[in-house]
Simulated assay, not measured.
Amino acid sequence: MTLRIPLLSPDPHAPFPPAACALRQPDGLLAMGGDLHPRRLLNAYRHGIFPWYSAGEPILWWSPDPRLVFRTDGVRLSSRFRRTLRRSGWQIRADTAFDAVIAACAASPRRGQHGTWITPAMRAAYAALHRLGHAHSVEVYDGERLVGGIYGVAIGRMFFGESMFSAESGGSKAALAGLAHLLHGWGWPLIDAQVESPHLLTLGAQRMPRARFLAEIDRLCAGAAEPAPWRDRVGVLPVSVLAGTASGS
């Protein structure tokens, strides 16, 4: 059977098809083509759509149903890991190593995947969003060595997570918990985690029907503040504070 997938206009200002038109199989495939221009990317995220494709493929745009999300007060860390955090000298910072974080995410092996979907074009596109103040990274440092991180796109009071990595055991979990801690303190209730995985579910991610997700982000993205770097806003946060803020198991 041939799938009929809408082809996007070359104009980065052109609208996307409604997310409700996405395919059931493969879940969430909505459109193809277009480009990764910052305006198109921001428009996509505002409407619950994200790019996900492999090298050699056309750009594919997705909006799965249900959507996986984290409540910023609902990241779950094991009791053992929280004890480790209490004794740790690691630190959380933001927007101090965006390029290094996305490069590490691209290089991290993923179970069941060959290669990476974070292609050079994707890296360049999100680096451009970062320079414009829309894309951000949260880093975990051991001294001055980067041991974990996460990056994504912020619009209004909504954070759309893209990928995370660990260079040391627990680095990505600390980055996720650190991001959630910061966002919860700012009054941002959700982190988009896009596609379900067993690992994310163990960390407290929840399934949300797409219609509800779209309604939530429409509200949270409204009245977006002027984009700006997070480096000075976050400063340096000891990971030990996360031991008391993340949910336990």
Rank of each mutant, 00 (worst) to 15 (best):
H181D: 15
R207K: 15
A246P: 04
P12V: 12
G185T: 12
R39P: 03
R207D: 06
M208Y: 12
A31W: 00
R207S: 15
V241G: 02
A104D: 09
Y53A: 05
T84S: 14
V241N: 00
H136E: 03
D218T: 15
A97L: 04
L36M: 11
L8Q: 13
V147L: 09
W62G: 02
E196H: 13
L68Q: 12
L42C: 07
H130D: 12
F160Q: 03
A167F: 00
D73H: 09
L29A: 08
C221F: 01
L242N: 03
P209I: 08
S88F: 04
E216V: 09
I155C: 03
P26N: 06
T119R: 05
F70K: 14
A94R: 09
R231V: 08
G33Y: 11
L68P: 05
P227R: 07
I191D: 08
G28L: 11
L60H: 13
P26Y: 01
E162H: 07
P51M: 03
A177H: 02
T2C: 06
P209C: 10
R93K: 15
D27N: 15
R219D: 01
G161E: 00
A211T: 14
A14G: 08
F98I: 14
G33K: 08
H199D: 14
S88K: 02
H114A: 15
R210Y: 07
A135L: 04
A174W: 05
L30Q: 02
R231Q: 14
E144W: 06
I102V: 13
A107I: 01
H47Y: 08
L68S: 14
F70H: 10
P189Q: 07
G235I: 07
W62C: 04
L176M: 12
L8H: 09
R219Q: 07
L77C: 07
L42W: 06
G56M: 07
S169A: 15
A94D: 02
G187E: 07
H134M: 11
R219G: 00
P38T: 06
R131F: 02
R212E: 12
A224L: 06
F159L: 09
P38L: 10
P238K: 14
A222Q: 13
V140Q: 02
Y141D: 01
H181R: 10
T84C: 04
F50H: 02
P51S: 05
R40K: 11
A174L: 03
P189G: 05
G235H: 14
V236C: 11
A97V: 01
P26V: 09
E139K: 11
I59A: 09
G143N: 03
A100W: 01
L85F: 15
P229C: 12
S9K: 05
L203Y: 14
L201F: 00
Q206W: 01
S9P: 06
Y53T: 03
G171M: 05
V241F: 02
K173H: 04
R80M: 11
S79D: 10
T119P: 03
R39G: 01
E168V: 08
A246C: 10
S78H: 03
A225K: 04
P15A: 11
F159A: 08
L203M: 15
G143Q: 13
H37D: 15
R24T: 11
I59T: 04
P10M: 03
H134P: 05
G185H: 13
E162N: 10
M32P: 01
L237K: 10
R207M: 13
A55D: 15
R86Y: 06
R40A: 04
S9H: 05
A222T: 03
P209A: 14
R145D: 13
V69P: 07
A225C: 00
R4F: 06
